[in-house]
Amino acid sequence: MSDIVDQINAVHRELGEKRIPAGEATVVVLRRSYDASVADVWDACTDPERLRRWFLPVSGDLTLGGEYQLEGNARGEILVCEAPRLLRVTWIFGENVTEKDISEVEVRLSAEPDGGTLLVLEHAAVVDPGFWGQFGPGAVGVGWDGSLLSLAAHLRGETFDEQTWQHSPEAKEFMTRSAEAWGAAHAAFGASPDEVATTVAATTKFYVPE
């Protein structure tokens, strides 16, 4: 239990706003430090062989301006790739999408004084008001929390079987606490207590069904 709490507390979560080609977007921001060099974290996030071990298999033209496909998940274009500091891609999920459905994911890495690396992940999307009112930031935030947890295990040299982990009691506890943490970030962004309670409950039910 304490390890789960530590993993939740290792991430700083906040919300913001920015303009992307799709329009005025809400930004989900995660910050986490890793006990690994910038070069190692960059390699883990961009090398297809390593990426599949903690995130998802990826295919496509993995160069600037190229298009990628995450197996069973999102696809998009590589907009910026400045090794080993900055990666920005479009994020397209599903078929028959319109321009407003194209979000952007950005990963920034910087060295910390102790030799570790600060990773900042931003996911900017134009969100349907009805969907946002139902789920809030946890809809995407809980998933990214899980990814950063998996990356931490990978950087420690551990094998992380996400498919098995997702059905464990530890995963259910982690996702429940993640939804609550995103509720706190939502409140700090200006959401009312009722809005926070509604979205946290819906997000928790989605990720941790009874």
Score class of each variant (00 low, 15 high):
180 E>P: 02
94 G>I: 09
56 L>T: 10
146 G>P: 04
176 T>W: 06
104 E>K: 05
59 S>Y: 05
209 P>W: 05
7 Q>A: 09
158 E>N: 13
84 P>F: 09
85 R>G: 12
148 L>Y: 02
146 G>K: 03
167 H>V: 12
72 G>D: 07
106 E>P: 00
15 L>V: 06
56 L>E: 06
196 V>L: 11
187 A>R: 05
63 T>E: 11
132 W>T: 11
140 V>N: 09
20 I>F: 13
167 H>M: 14
101 D>C: 09
174 F>S: 00
195 E>G: 08
11 V>F: 05
164 T>I: 04
152 A>G: 14
193 P>F: 03
88 R>L: 14
170 E>H: 06
49 E>Q: 11
31 R>E: 13
68 Y>H: 12
50 R>A: 14
163 Q>L: 12
49 E>A: 15
145 D>W: 04
80 V>T: 12
171 A>C: 06
94 G>S: 11
18 K>F: 02
165 W>R: 12
62 L>K: 14
28 V>S: 15
86 L>D: 10
175 M>Q: 08
170 E>K: 07
149 L>P: 03
131 F>N: 09
70 L>G: 06
13 R>C: 04
121 L>G: 07
103 S>D: 13
188 A>V: 00
147 S>I: 02
126 V>F: 13
34 Y>D: 00
70 L>R: 09
88 R>H: 04
151 L>M: 08
98 T>L: 10
12 H>R: 15
120 V>L: 02
9 N>L: 02
109 L>V: 01
65 G>F: 11
179 A>R: 10
78 I>Q: 12
110 S>W: 03
133 G>M: 13
35 D>K: 02
198 T>L: 14
91 W>N: 14
13 R>Y: 04
183 G>C: 05
128 D>C: 08
111 A>K: 01
9 N>S: 12
94 G>V: 08
87 L>S: 14
94 G>E: 10
138 G>Q: 04
24 E>V: 04
18 K>A: 10
208 V>N: 15
110 S>C: 03
54 W>M: 10
85 R>I: 04
75 R>Y: 08
183 G>Y: 04
98 T>V: 11
195 E>M: 09
30 L>T: 07
45 C>G: 06
184 A>K: 03
198 T>Y: 04
58 V>S: 12
177 R>C: 00
82 E>G: 06
201 A>D: 03
24 E>D: 10
190 G>M: 01
116 G>E: 00
117 T>H: 00
117 T>E: 02
121 L>C: 07
39 A>I: 00
116 G>W: 01
1 M>H: 11
150 S>E: 07
1 M>E: 04
77 E>R: 13
140 V>A: 15
181 A>C: 03
178 S>C: 07
199 T>H: 05
153 A>G: 03
185 A>D: 02
97 V>N: 15
112 E>C: 00
111 A>C: 01
159 T>W: 07
32 R>Q: 08
127 V>F: 12
129 P>T: 05
16 G>D: 04
139 A>Q: 13
149 L>C: 05
97 V>I: 06
167 H>I: 06
59 S>V: 13
25 A>F: 03
138 G>S: 06
40 D>H: 00
104 E>D: 05
24 E>W: 03
169 P>H: 05
81 C>A: 13
161 D>A: 10
25 A>T: 05
79 L>C: 09
163 Q>N: 11
34 Y>W: 00
57 P>A: 09
70 L>V: 11
153 A>E: 08
22 A>G: 13
54 W>T: 11
96 N>Q: 14
126 V>H: 15
122 E>I: 03
75 R>C: 14
187 A>F: 04
64 L>F: 08
145 D>F: 05
